[in-house]
């Protein structure tokens, strides 16, 4: 199982963290939900995976391309 990183594709604020370390996710399951452009925008798991670490907390500001989680899968 390859380790990889998940990055944001939009600048905004972390509204909710929906996944925790150790959790198994299906492809497209949200890891965090950002608030940007007055929208709730999920950052989804790119593949079916296990979450190793979520690097952001609710209220954090993120910029396009920031790493928000490490996953394995």
């Amino acid at each position: 199982m390859a380790r990889s990183t998940v990055r944001t594709e939009i600048t905004g604020k972390v509204w909710k963290v929906t996944a925790t370390a150790g959790q198994s996710l299906a492809e497209d399951d949200p890891i965090v939900i950002l608030e940007s452009m007055k929208m709730e925008i999920p950052v989804p798991a790119p593949v079916a995976c296990k979450v190793i670490e979520v690097l952001v907390a609710e209220g954090d500001a993120v910029t396009e391309g920031d790493v928000i989680a490490h996953i394995e899968g």
């Binding site: 939009i10 940007s36 452009m37 929208m39 709730e40």
Partner: peptide
Amino acid sequence: NPMFKGGA
């Protein structure tokens, strides 16, 4: 497509 970047 709102699914990506909220449609922006």
